[in-house]
Design a protein around this nucleic acid. Structure first.
Lengths: 224, 224
DNA sequence: TAAAAAAATTCAGGTTATTTTCAGGTTGGT
DNA sequence: ACCAACCTGAAAATAACCTGAATTTTTTTA
Protein backbone atom coordinates (compact mmCIF):
# COMPACT_ATOMS: atom_id res chain seq x y z
CA UNK A 1 0.00 0.00 0.00
CA UNK A 2 1.78 3.09 -1.26
CA UNK A 3 0.71 6.64 -0.61
CA UNK A 4 1.76 9.92 -2.17
CA UNK A 5 1.72 13.13 -0.15
CA UNK A 6 1.90 16.43 -2.03
CA UNK A 7 2.37 19.33 0.38
CA UNK A 8 4.68 22.30 0.05
CA UNK A 9 5.02 23.18 3.69
CA UNK A 10 7.91 20.92 4.58
CA UNK A 11 7.19 20.47 8.28
CA UNK A 12 3.55 19.66 7.69
CA UNK A 13 4.47 17.29 4.91
CA UNK A 14 6.80 15.44 7.24
CA UNK A 15 4.18 15.30 9.94
CA UNK A 16 1.64 13.83 7.58
CA UNK A 17 4.11 11.28 6.28
CA UNK A 18 4.85 10.32 9.86
CA UNK A 19 1.19 9.83 10.69
CA UNK A 20 0.66 7.67 7.67
CA UNK A 21 3.72 5.56 8.29
CA UNK A 22 2.35 4.66 11.67
CA UNK A 23 -0.33 2.80 9.85
CA UNK A 24 2.28 0.74 8.03
CA UNK A 25 1.86 2.37 4.64
CA UNK A 26 4.74 3.29 2.40
CA UNK A 27 4.86 7.03 1.81
CA UNK A 28 6.46 9.26 -0.79
CA UNK A 29 6.46 13.02 -0.34
CA UNK A 30 6.89 15.76 -2.91
CA UNK A 31 6.68 19.49 -2.42
CA UNK A 32 5.31 21.11 -5.51
CA UNK A 33 2.46 20.73 -7.93
CA UNK A 34 4.44 19.71 -10.94
CA UNK A 35 6.28 16.93 -9.18
CA UNK A 36 3.01 15.97 -7.58
CA UNK A 37 1.40 15.62 -10.95
CA UNK A 38 4.25 13.58 -12.40
CA UNK A 39 4.29 11.22 -9.47
CA UNK A 40 0.52 10.91 -9.46
CA UNK A 41 0.52 9.97 -13.11
CA UNK A 42 2.84 7.05 -12.47
CA UNK A 43 -0.18 5.13 -11.27
CA UNK A 44 1.74 3.28 -8.61
CA UNK A 45 -0.06 4.86 -5.67
CA UNK A 46 -3.09 3.55 -3.88
CA UNK A 47 -4.09 6.88 -2.37
CA UNK A 48 -2.90 10.44 -2.93
CA UNK A 49 -3.06 13.16 -0.27
CA UNK A 50 -3.02 16.49 -1.99
CA UNK A 51 -2.77 20.00 -0.65
CA UNK A 52 -4.85 22.51 -2.57
CA UNK A 53 -2.49 25.49 -2.37
CA UNK A 54 0.67 24.43 -4.09
CA UNK A 55 3.41 26.14 -6.03
CA UNK A 56 3.37 25.72 -9.80
CA UNK A 57 0.18 23.71 -10.13
CA UNK A 58 -2.67 23.68 -7.63
CA UNK A 59 -4.42 20.66 -6.23
CA UNK A 60 -7.64 21.05 -8.19
CA UNK A 61 -5.73 21.31 -11.39
CA UNK A 62 -3.74 18.20 -10.62
CA UNK A 63 -6.84 16.13 -9.97
CA UNK A 64 -8.57 17.47 -13.01
CA UNK A 65 -5.63 16.58 -15.23
CA UNK A 66 -5.32 13.18 -13.66
CA UNK A 67 -8.95 12.33 -14.26
CA UNK A 68 -8.72 13.65 -17.76
CA UNK A 69 -5.89 11.21 -18.33
CA UNK A 70 -7.80 8.27 -16.91
CA UNK A 71 -5.97 7.98 -13.62
CA UNK A 72 -8.42 6.65 -11.06
CA UNK A 73 -6.22 6.79 -8.00
CA UNK A 74 -8.33 8.08 -5.09
CA UNK A 75 -7.41 11.58 -3.97
CA UNK A 76 -7.91 13.28 -0.62
CA UNK A 77 -7.69 17.06 -0.83
CA UNK A 78 -6.39 19.13 2.05
CA UNK A 79 -7.81 22.60 2.29
CA UNK A 80 -7.42 25.44 4.76
CA UNK A 81 -10.40 26.15 6.94
CA UNK A 82 -11.42 29.41 5.33
CA UNK A 83 -11.58 27.92 1.90
CA UNK A 84 -14.73 25.97 2.64
CA UNK A 85 -16.16 26.88 -0.71
CA UNK A 86 -13.36 24.88 -2.14
CA UNK A 87 -15.16 21.85 -0.90
CA UNK A 88 -17.48 22.04 -3.82
CA UNK A 89 -14.78 22.67 -6.33
CA UNK A 90 -12.81 19.87 -4.78
CA UNK A 91 -15.32 17.11 -5.21
CA UNK A 92 -16.36 18.61 -8.51
CA UNK A 93 -12.96 18.29 -10.02
CA UNK A 94 -12.78 14.61 -9.33
CA UNK A 95 -11.35 14.30 -5.85
CA UNK A 96 -12.74 11.57 -3.63
CA UNK A 97 -12.59 13.18 -0.25
CA UNK A 98 -11.42 16.36 1.42
CA UNK A 99 -10.17 17.34 4.81
CA UNK A 100 -9.93 20.83 6.28
CA UNK A 101 -6.75 21.84 8.03
CA UNK A 102 -6.11 21.47 10.85
CA UNK A 103 -7.27 17.91 11.18
CA UNK A 104 -6.86 15.09 13.65
CA UNK A 105 -4.34 12.45 12.59
CA UNK A 106 -6.88 9.77 13.28
CA UNK A 107 -9.27 11.46 10.89
CA UNK A 108 -6.78 11.40 8.07
CA UNK A 109 -5.96 7.77 8.67
CA UNK A 110 -9.62 6.80 8.73
CA UNK A 111 -10.17 8.42 5.37
CA UNK A 112 -7.11 6.89 3.85
CA UNK A 113 -8.23 3.49 5.05
CA UNK A 114 -11.69 4.06 3.67
CA UNK A 115 -10.37 4.99 0.25
CA UNK A 116 -7.80 2.25 0.21
CA UNK A 117 -10.51 -0.24 0.94
CA UNK A 118 -12.80 1.15 -1.67
CA UNK A 119 -10.03 0.69 -4.18
CA UNK A 120 -10.59 -3.05 -4.04
CA UNK A 121 -14.17 -2.69 -5.17
CA UNK A 122 -13.79 -0.73 -8.31
CA UNK A 123 -16.68 -1.46 -10.57
CA UNK A 124 -14.88 -1.10 -13.83
CA UNK A 125 -15.41 -4.35 -15.55
CA UNK A 126 -13.02 -4.63 -18.40
CA UNK A 127 -10.21 -2.90 -20.19
CA UNK A 128 -9.84 -2.86 -23.94
CA UNK A 129 -7.12 -2.18 -26.39
CA UNK A 130 -7.28 -2.92 -30.10
CA UNK A 131 -8.61 -6.47 -30.37
CA UNK A 132 -8.06 -7.60 -26.79
CA UNK A 133 -10.17 -7.32 -23.67
CA UNK A 134 -9.04 -7.92 -20.15
CA UNK A 135 -11.90 -9.05 -17.98
CA UNK A 136 -11.21 -7.56 -14.58
CA UNK A 137 -13.55 -9.80 -12.71
CA UNK A 138 -12.49 -13.16 -14.06
CA UNK A 139 -8.87 -12.43 -14.93
CA UNK A 140 -9.46 -13.65 -18.46
CA UNK A 141 -7.70 -12.08 -21.41
CA UNK A 142 -9.92 -12.32 -24.45
CA UNK A 143 -9.45 -11.87 -28.15
CA UNK A 144 -12.15 -12.85 -30.58
CA UNK A 145 -13.61 -16.13 -29.46
CA UNK A 146 -10.47 -17.27 -27.68
CA UNK A 147 -9.49 -16.51 -24.13
CA UNK A 148 -6.81 -17.39 -21.65
CA UNK A 149 -6.62 -17.10 -17.93
CA UNK A 150 -3.95 -14.83 -16.49
CA UNK A 151 -2.22 -15.47 -13.20
CA UNK A 152 -2.14 -12.66 -10.68
CA UNK A 153 1.16 -11.13 -11.73
CA UNK A 154 0.47 -11.51 -15.41
CA UNK A 155 -2.87 -9.87 -14.77
CA UNK A 156 -1.50 -6.90 -12.91
CA UNK A 157 1.13 -6.22 -15.50
CA UNK A 158 -1.41 -6.45 -18.26
CA UNK A 159 -3.70 -4.13 -16.41
CA UNK A 160 -0.99 -1.54 -16.00
CA UNK A 161 -0.15 -1.71 -19.67
CA UNK A 162 -3.79 -1.32 -20.56
CA UNK A 163 -4.56 1.57 -18.24
CA UNK A 164 -1.54 3.36 -19.65
CA UNK A 165 -2.09 2.37 -23.20
CA UNK A 166 -0.58 5.41 -24.77
CA UNK A 167 2.38 5.73 -22.49
CA UNK A 168 5.45 3.74 -21.82
CA UNK A 169 5.12 2.07 -18.46
CA UNK A 170 8.51 2.15 -16.75
CA UNK A 171 9.85 -1.22 -15.81
CA UNK A 172 10.56 0.31 -12.43
CA UNK A 173 6.87 1.00 -11.92
CA UNK A 174 5.95 -2.52 -12.83
CA UNK A 175 8.38 -3.82 -10.26
CA UNK A 176 7.05 -1.47 -7.63
CA UNK A 177 3.40 -2.05 -8.26
CA UNK A 178 3.43 -5.76 -8.98
CA UNK A 179 6.20 -6.99 -6.74
CA UNK A 180 6.14 -4.22 -4.16
CA UNK A 181 8.95 -2.11 -2.87
CA UNK A 182 10.07 -4.62 -0.27
CA UNK A 183 10.69 -7.26 -2.85
CA UNK A 184 14.08 -8.03 -4.25
CA UNK A 185 12.75 -9.04 -7.61
CA UNK A 186 14.91 -7.80 -10.44
CA UNK A 187 14.37 -6.60 -13.94
CA UNK A 188 14.52 -10.10 -15.27
CA UNK A 189 11.39 -11.03 -13.39
CA UNK A 190 9.49 -8.43 -15.31
CA UNK A 191 11.07 -9.61 -18.54
CA UNK A 192 10.01 -13.16 -17.89
CA UNK A 193 6.43 -12.08 -17.31
CA UNK A 194 6.43 -9.90 -20.39
CA UNK A 195 7.53 -12.98 -22.22
CA UNK A 196 4.66 -14.99 -20.72
CA UNK A 197 2.22 -12.34 -21.82
CA UNK A 198 3.61 -12.21 -25.32
CA UNK A 199 3.21 -15.93 -25.57
CA UNK A 200 -0.41 -15.67 -24.54
CA UNK A 201 -1.11 -12.79 -26.90
CA UNK A 202 0.36 -14.83 -29.68
CA UNK A 203 -1.73 -17.85 -28.71
CA UNK A 204 -4.80 -15.62 -28.86
CA UNK A 205 -3.83 -14.52 -32.32
CA UNK A 206 -4.07 -10.91 -31.24
CA UNK A 207 -2.63 -8.02 -33.20
CA UNK A 208 -1.48 -6.47 -29.97
CA UNK A 209 2.18 -6.34 -29.34
CA UNK A 210 4.13 -5.50 -26.22
CA UNK A 211 6.83 -3.13 -27.38
CA UNK A 212 9.92 -2.29 -25.41
CA UNK A 213 11.75 0.98 -24.96
CA UNK A 214 15.19 0.01 -23.86
CA UNK A 215 16.20 1.24 -20.43
CA UNK A 216 12.70 2.55 -19.82
CA UNK A 217 9.84 0.15 -20.06
CA UNK A 218 7.02 -1.31 -22.10
CA UNK A 219 3.92 -0.22 -23.95
CA UNK A 220 1.19 -1.76 -26.01
CA UNK A 221 0.92 -1.19 -29.71
CA UNK A 222 -0.72 -2.73 -32.70
CA UNK A 223 1.23 -4.93 -35.08
CA UNK A 224 1.58 -4.14 -38.77
CA UNK B 1 -36.14 -9.39 4.34
CA UNK B 2 -32.69 -9.04 5.78
CA UNK B 3 -31.52 -6.41 8.19
CA UNK B 4 -28.07 -5.36 9.28
CA UNK B 5 -27.45 -3.97 12.73
CA UNK B 6 -24.18 -2.16 13.36
CA UNK B 7 -23.77 -1.40 17.05
CA UNK B 8 -20.68 -1.80 19.16
CA UNK B 9 -22.34 -2.14 22.53
CA UNK B 10 -22.93 -5.87 22.57
CA UNK B 11 -25.91 -5.97 24.90
CA UNK B 12 -27.72 -3.25 23.07
CA UNK B 13 -26.94 -4.89 19.75
CA UNK B 14 -28.45 -8.11 20.98
CA UNK B 15 -31.52 -6.34 22.26
CA UNK B 16 -32.08 -4.63 18.96
CA UNK B 17 -31.61 -7.86 17.06
CA UNK B 18 -34.16 -9.46 19.35
CA UNK B 19 -36.69 -6.74 18.75
CA UNK B 20 -36.29 -6.99 15.02
CA UNK B 21 -36.49 -10.76 14.97
CA UNK B 22 -39.86 -10.55 16.61
CA UNK B 23 -41.07 -9.01 13.42
CA UNK B 24 -39.83 -12.06 11.51
CA UNK B 25 -36.90 -10.38 9.81
CA UNK B 26 -33.52 -11.99 9.39
CA UNK B 27 -30.87 -10.06 11.27
CA UNK B 28 -27.11 -9.89 11.09
CA UNK B 29 -25.16 -8.04 13.72
CA UNK B 30 -21.66 -6.63 13.56
CA UNK B 31 -19.82 -4.62 16.13
CA UNK B 32 -17.51 -2.17 14.46
CA UNK B 33 -17.52 0.38 11.72
CA UNK B 34 -15.22 -1.38 9.32
CA UNK B 35 -17.18 -4.59 9.39
CA UNK B 36 -20.32 -2.55 9.20
CA UNK B 37 -19.12 -0.88 6.08
CA UNK B 38 -18.03 -4.11 4.45
CA UNK B 39 -21.32 -5.79 5.21
CA UNK B 40 -23.31 -2.79 4.08
CA UNK B 41 -21.48 -2.75 0.79
CA UNK B 42 -22.49 -6.32 0.13
CA UNK B 43 -25.85 -4.97 -0.90
CA UNK B 44 -27.75 -7.91 0.51
CA UNK B 45 -29.64 -5.96 3.17
CA UNK B 46 -33.01 -4.32 2.94
CA UNK B 47 -32.49 -1.97 5.84
CA UNK B 48 -29.43 -1.05 7.88
CA UNK B 49 -29.60 0.11 11.47
CA UNK B 50 -26.46 2.04 12.19
CA UNK B 51 -25.09 3.43 15.40
CA UNK B 52 -23.28 6.73 14.96
CA UNK B 53 -20.55 6.22 17.51
CA UNK B 54 -18.60 3.22 16.38
CA UNK B 55 -15.03 2.00 16.65
CA UNK B 56 -12.86 2.32 13.55
CA UNK B 57 -15.32 4.08 11.26
CA UNK B 58 -18.27 6.15 12.40
CA UNK B 59 -21.83 5.93 11.20
CA UNK B 60 -21.82 9.14 9.18
CA UNK B 61 -18.72 8.06 7.40
CA UNK B 62 -20.21 4.69 6.56
CA UNK B 63 -23.31 6.20 5.01
CA UNK B 64 -21.33 8.78 3.12
CA UNK B 65 -19.08 6.14 1.65
CA UNK B 66 -22.00 3.89 0.84
CA UNK B 67 -23.86 6.60 -1.02
CA UNK B 68 -20.75 7.60 -2.82
CA UNK B 69 -20.46 4.02 -3.97
CA UNK B 70 -24.00 3.86 -5.19
CA UNK B 71 -25.47 1.67 -2.46
CA UNK B 72 -29.08 2.70 -1.93
CA UNK B 73 -29.94 0.52 1.03
CA UNK B 74 -32.06 2.57 3.45
CA UNK B 75 -30.23 3.50 6.64
CA UNK B 76 -31.55 4.35 10.08
CA UNK B 77 -29.03 6.14 12.25
CA UNK B 78 -28.97 5.72 16.01
CA UNK B 79 -27.42 8.38 18.16
CA UNK B 80 -27.04 8.78 21.89
CA UNK B 81 -26.96 12.55 21.84
CA UNK B 82 -30.11 14.28 20.78
CA UNK B 83 -28.18 17.17 19.37
CA UNK B 84 -29.73 18.80 16.40
CA UNK B 85 -26.30 19.08 14.89
CA UNK B 86 -25.95 15.36 14.53
CA UNK B 87 -29.33 15.16 13.02
CA UNK B 88 -28.36 17.53 10.30
CA UNK B 89 -25.10 15.77 9.62
CA UNK B 90 -26.94 12.50 9.65
CA UNK B 91 -29.51 13.26 7.04
CA UNK B 92 -26.94 15.28 5.14
CA UNK B 93 -24.66 12.36 4.74
CA UNK B 94 -27.35 10.30 3.10
CA UNK B 95 -29.14 8.50 5.89
CA UNK B 96 -32.89 7.94 5.55
CA UNK B 97 -34.09 8.15 9.09
CA UNK B 98 -32.98 9.00 12.54
CA UNK B 99 -33.63 7.68 16.04
CA UNK B 100 -32.24 8.97 19.33
CA UNK B 101 -31.31 6.54 22.04
CA UNK B 102 -33.03 5.50 24.15
CA UNK B 103 -35.97 4.60 21.98
CA UNK B 104 -39.06 2.44 22.27
CA UNK B 105 -38.79 -0.91 20.50
CA UNK B 106 -42.07 -0.25 18.76
CA UNK B 107 -40.65 2.97 17.40
CA UNK B 108 -37.71 1.22 15.80
CA UNK B 109 -39.92 -1.45 14.29
CA UNK B 110 -42.27 1.13 12.86
CA UNK B 111 -39.46 2.91 11.14
CA UNK B 112 -37.94 -0.27 9.80
CA UNK B 113 -41.31 -1.30 8.43
CA UNK B 114 -41.73 2.10 6.83
CA UNK B 115 -38.39 1.94 5.11
CA UNK B 116 -38.80 -1.67 4.13
CA UNK B 117 -42.16 -0.90 2.62
CA UNK B 118 -40.80 2.06 0.77
CA UNK B 119 -38.13 -0.21 -0.59
CA UNK B 120 -40.73 -2.37 -2.26
CA UNK B 121 -41.33 -5.82 -0.90
CA UNK B 122 -39.39 -7.66 -3.52
CA UNK B 123 -38.52 -10.94 -1.90
CA UNK B 124 -36.20 -12.89 -4.03
CA UNK B 125 -36.62 -16.52 -3.20
CA UNK B 126 -34.23 -18.22 -5.55
CA UNK B 127 -31.02 -17.63 -7.39
CA UNK B 128 -30.11 -19.11 -10.74
CA UNK B 129 -27.02 -19.65 -12.75
CA UNK B 130 -26.75 -21.80 -15.84
CA UNK B 131 -28.49 -25.06 -14.98
CA UNK B 132 -28.62 -24.70 -11.22
CA UNK B 133 -31.10 -23.05 -8.88
CA UNK B 134 -30.57 -22.26 -5.26
CA UNK B 135 -33.80 -22.15 -3.34
CA UNK B 136 -33.31 -19.52 -0.67
CA UNK B 137 -36.04 -20.68 1.61
CA UNK B 138 -35.40 -24.43 1.60
CA UNK B 139 -31.62 -24.35 1.15
CA UNK B 140 -31.97 -26.82 -1.68
CA UNK B 141 -29.62 -26.68 -4.62
CA UNK B 142 -31.38 -27.95 -7.70
CA UNK B 143 -30.31 -29.06 -11.12
CA UNK B 144 -32.74 -30.76 -13.47
CA UNK B 145 -34.76 -33.24 -11.48
CA UNK B 146 -32.11 -33.75 -8.84
CA UNK B 147 -31.54 -31.70 -5.74
CA UNK B 148 -29.44 -31.67 -2.61
CA UNK B 149 -29.72 -29.92 0.68
CA UNK B 150 -26.96 -27.48 1.60
CA UNK B 151 -25.75 -26.88 5.12
CA UNK B 152 -25.71 -23.30 6.34
CA UNK B 153 -22.13 -22.56 5.39
CA UNK B 154 -22.37 -24.33 2.08
CA UNK B 155 -25.51 -22.32 1.44
CA UNK B 156 -24.01 -18.96 2.22
CA UNK B 157 -20.96 -19.57 0.12
CA UNK B 158 -23.12 -20.71 -2.76
CA UNK B 159 -25.29 -17.67 -2.38
CA UNK B 160 -22.34 -15.36 -2.50
CA UNK B 161 -21.01 -17.03 -5.60
CA UNK B 162 -24.43 -16.79 -7.21
CA UNK B 163 -25.09 -13.15 -6.37
CA UNK B 164 -21.70 -12.34 -7.81
CA UNK B 165 -21.76 -14.67 -10.76
CA UNK B 166 -19.26 -13.55 -13.35
CA UNK B 167 -17.12 -11.98 -10.68
CA UNK B 168 -14.39 -13.48 -8.64
CA UNK B 169 -15.48 -13.50 -5.02
CA UNK B 170 -12.40 -12.95 -2.90
CA UNK B 171 -11.68 -15.73 -0.48
CA UNK B 172 -11.27 -13.02 2.09
CA UNK B 173 -14.88 -11.91 1.60
CA UNK B 174 -16.12 -15.43 1.98
CA UNK B 175 -14.28 -15.73 5.26
CA UNK B 176 -15.63 -12.39 6.42
CA UNK B 177 -19.23 -12.89 5.51
CA UNK B 178 -19.63 -16.58 6.15
CA UNK B 179 -17.46 -16.99 9.21
CA UNK B 180 -17.44 -13.39 10.44
CA UNK B 181 -14.50 -11.21 11.29
CA UNK B 182 -14.19 -12.41 14.85
CA UNK B 183 -13.69 -15.97 13.74
CA UNK B 184 -10.30 -17.56 13.45
CA UNK B 185 -11.27 -19.73 10.55
CA UNK B 186 -8.54 -19.91 7.96
CA UNK B 187 -8.33 -20.22 4.24
CA UNK B 188 -8.50 -23.95 4.44
CA UNK B 189 -12.00 -23.80 5.84
CA UNK B 190 -13.16 -22.08 2.73
CA UNK B 191 -11.31 -24.59 0.61
CA UNK B 192 -12.97 -27.49 2.34
CA UNK B 193 -16.39 -26.01 1.73
CA UNK B 194 -15.60 -25.28 -1.88
CA UNK B 195 -14.67 -28.91 -2.14
CA UNK B 196 -18.00 -29.95 -0.59
CA UNK B 197 -19.86 -27.77 -3.05
CA UNK B 198 -17.96 -29.15 -5.98
CA UNK B 199 -18.82 -32.63 -4.89
CA UNK B 200 -22.49 -31.72 -4.74
CA UNK B 201 -22.42 -29.98 -8.10
CA UNK B 202 -20.85 -33.04 -9.57
CA UNK B 203 -23.46 -35.28 -7.95
CA UNK B 204 -26.16 -33.09 -9.47
CA UNK B 205 -24.56 -33.53 -12.86
CA UNK B 206 -24.48 -29.77 -13.29
CA UNK B 207 -22.41 -28.00 -15.90
CA UNK B 208 -21.52 -25.38 -13.33
CA UNK B 209 -17.99 -25.28 -12.17
CA UNK B 210 -16.39 -23.43 -9.28
CA UNK B 211 -13.26 -21.92 -10.74
CA UNK B 212 -10.39 -20.63 -8.69
CA UNK B 213 -8.16 -17.63 -9.22
CA UNK B 214 -5.14 -18.37 -7.12
CA UNK B 215 -4.41 -15.79 -4.44
CA UNK B 216 -7.75 -14.12 -5.06
CA UNK B 217 -10.87 -16.22 -4.86
CA UNK B 218 -13.55 -18.21 -6.62
CA UNK B 219 -16.19 -17.71 -9.26
CA UNK B 220 -18.81 -19.71 -11.07
CA UNK B 221 -18.48 -20.60 -14.67
CA UNK B 222 -19.90 -23.09 -17.09
CA UNK B 223 -17.91 -26.15 -18.02
CA UNK B 224 -16.76 -26.71 -21.59
C1' DT C 1 -31.95 -37.72 27.84
C1' DA C 2 -29.29 -40.53 25.11
C1' DA C 3 -28.36 -41.94 20.68
C1' DA C 4 -27.99 -40.77 15.97
C1' DA C 5 -27.35 -37.67 12.34
C1' DA C 6 -25.66 -33.68 10.34
C1' DA C 7 -22.62 -29.98 10.15
C1' DA C 8 -18.30 -28.00 10.98
C1' DT C 9 -13.44 -28.27 11.86
C1' DT C 10 -8.84 -30.06 11.61
C1' DC C 11 -5.08 -32.17 9.52
C1' DA C 12 -1.90 -34.31 6.44
C1' DG C 13 -0.34 -35.55 2.11
C1' DG C 14 -0.95 -35.00 -2.74
C1' DT C 15 -1.54 -31.97 -6.83
C1' DT C 16 -0.98 -28.06 -9.52
C1' DA C 17 -0.42 -23.22 -10.85
C1' DT C 18 2.54 -19.72 -10.19
C1' DT C 19 6.89 -17.69 -9.46
C1' DT C 20 11.73 -17.63 -9.48
C1' DT C 21 16.13 -18.75 -11.25
C1' DC C 22 19.46 -19.31 -14.63
C1' DA C 23 21.94 -19.83 -18.79
C1' DG C 24 22.60 -18.87 -23.33
C1' DG C 25 20.85 -16.46 -27.31
C1' DT C 26 19.31 -12.06 -29.56
C1' DT C 27 19.03 -7.19 -30.41
C1' DG C 28 19.87 -2.30 -30.89
C1' DG C 29 22.40 1.85 -30.06
C1' DT C 30 26.86 4.07 -29.98
C1' DA D 1 31.77 -4.61 -33.53
C1' DC D 2 30.90 -4.25 -28.80
C1' DC D 3 28.23 -4.05 -24.72
C1' DA D 4 24.45 -3.61 -22.10
C1' DA D 5 19.89 -4.55 -22.17
C1' DC D 6 16.57 -7.63 -23.32
C1' DC D 7 14.45 -12.22 -24.58
C1' DT D 8 13.08 -16.85 -23.63
C1' DG D 9 13.07 -21.97 -22.73
C1' DA D 10 13.48 -25.04 -19.23
C1' DA D 11 14.01 -26.53 -14.66
C1' DA D 12 13.60 -25.81 -9.90
C1' DA D 13 11.39 -23.82 -6.02
C1' DT D 14 7.52 -22.14 -3.84
C1' DA D 15 3.10 -21.33 -2.38
C1' DA D 16 -1.65 -22.08 -3.03
C1' DC D 17 -5.00 -25.17 -3.39
C1' DC D 18 -7.50 -29.76 -3.12
C1' DT D 19 -9.48 -33.50 -0.78
C1' DG D 20 -10.14 -37.83 2.01
C1' DA D 21 -10.64 -39.01 6.41
C1' DA D 22 -10.70 -38.45 11.28
C1' DT D 23 -12.43 -35.65 14.88
C1' DT D 24 -15.26 -32.49 17.30
C1' DT D 25 -19.37 -29.84 17.79
C1' DT D 26 -24.11 -29.00 17.09
C1' DT D 27 -28.64 -30.33 16.01
C1' DT D 28 -32.20 -33.58 15.45
C1' DT D 29 -34.63 -37.55 16.57
C1' DA D 30 -36.30 -41.34 19.12
Amino acid sequence: MRILVVEDEIRLAEAIAQIIKEDKYTVDVVHDGEDGYDYAMSDIYDVIVLDVMLPKLNGFEIVRQMRRNKRQTPVILLTAKDEINDKVTGLDCGADDYLTKPFAPEELLARIRALARRQGEVVMDELDFADITLNLSTYMLECGYKSVHLGLKEFEIMRMLLTNSNNVVPKENLLLKVWGSESEAEDNNVEVYISFLRKKLSYLGSSVNIAVVRKVGYYLDVKK
